[in-house]
């Protein structure tokens, strides 16, 4: 019965693991709901500020902000990489880094250097191994990230852009398509691209590009400075909360399949265990029968 006992212990340990994964699945499911609420709550602001900035790109401002001017030569690009703090969420981070590297290789071929800003512990770990030039890192954002927690890292990247050390800035995060699907995206933040206001659909018919300008209060420079910084912050914040919703969804799916796999494993092992038990009983009986015949 030695083999049977070993199998029993193994089944027991898999059952324990299954309990943990199914608990994690349920936790992730409830956190996902909260993360999704957070993501939805932020969407109106992100959309409206994108509309406003889109309008601004249509206008003919007296003052061209640095963020709105395409630079002729791109020597260095920056990436703000939004990842999760914890693992056990399937291929979420891995797919994101793969998408990032694909993009980075294209820039490398064109001779542009890269700087990275890592949001989330997993991105920091990744860059430690990959060896990219990490200029800012922030982890431990938790389930309800705040804009205040992100400002520092964003500022590092924006200052680099202001000083001309970066010529382009991207944000890399997972887009929440639905619970089953998360899509890694690389979106350009700076310079502001004209298609940014693409969802400013309500006044497409009376858009008159380049023929008008805003009245600014207090003055164009001060206003655009703070508005555009706010815009970048809101876009990064939105990316972080969306990635948070992705994380919980991916974890829920990963834990669900882990629970299912454990179930399958237990079924298989139980079959083996029963066979071993049966074999032991059969052997015992044949030994008794054989013994009785000998007497």
């Amino acid at each position: 019965m030695a083999a049977a006992k070993e199998i029993r212990t193994q089944i027991g340990s898999i059952k324990n693991t299954q309990k943990i994964t199914s608990a994690m699945e349920m936790v992730a499911a409830s956190k996902m709901r909260k993360a999704q609420d957070l993501m939805r709550a932020g969407q109106p602001y992100a959309r409206q500020i994108r509309n406003v900035v889109g309008h601004m790109a249509d206008a003919n401002p007296e003052y061209k902000h640095d963020y709105m001017v395409e630079r002729s030569e791109v020597k260095r690009v920056g990436y703000i990489v939004v990842s999760t703090d914890r693992g056990l969420c399937g291929g979420l981070n891995h797919n994101l880094f793969k998408a990032l590297l694909k993009e980075a290789v294209i820039w490398k071929k064109q001779g542009a250097e890269q700087d990275f800003c890592a949001l989330g512990a997993k991105a920091s770990t990744f860059f430690r191994n990959y060896g990219g030039n990490l200029v800012a890192a922030k982890s431990g954002l938790g389930e309800a990230p705040t804009v205040e927690g992100l400002i520092g890292s964003i500022k590092v990247m924006l200052e680099a852009y202001d000083e001309g050390r970066l010529d382009r800035l991207y944000v890399v995060y997972n887009e929440f398509v639905n619970t089953m699907t998360q899509k890694p995206v690389v979106r350009q933040l700076l310079p502001l691209s004209p298609d940014m206001g693409a969802d400013a659909e309500q006044d497409d018919e009376n858009a008159r590009p380049g023929s008008w300008d805003y009245l600014y209060e207090p003055d164009a420079k001060a206003l655009l400075d703070s508005l555009l910084v706010r815009f970048i912050e809101s876009q990064v914040y939105q990316a972080v909360v969306e990635n948070g919703a992705c994380e919980q969804a991916a974890r829920m799916i990963a834990m669900k399949s882990a629970t299912d796999n454990a179930g399958g494993l237990i079924d298989d092992l139980e079959m083996v265990y029963n066979k071993a038990r049966q074999a032991a009983i059969t052997q015992e009986i044949s030994e008794i029968v054989g013994g009785a015949a000998a007497v």
């Binding site: 009245l215 600014y216 209060e217």
Partner: peptide
């Protein structure tokens, strides 16, 4: 820079 009342057809304006 002071209180603003916005009526329909106002000129494009951006303010803090």
């Amino acid at each position: 820079m002071g209180d603003l009342g916005i009526l329909p057809g106002h000129a494009p304006l951006l303010t803090e």
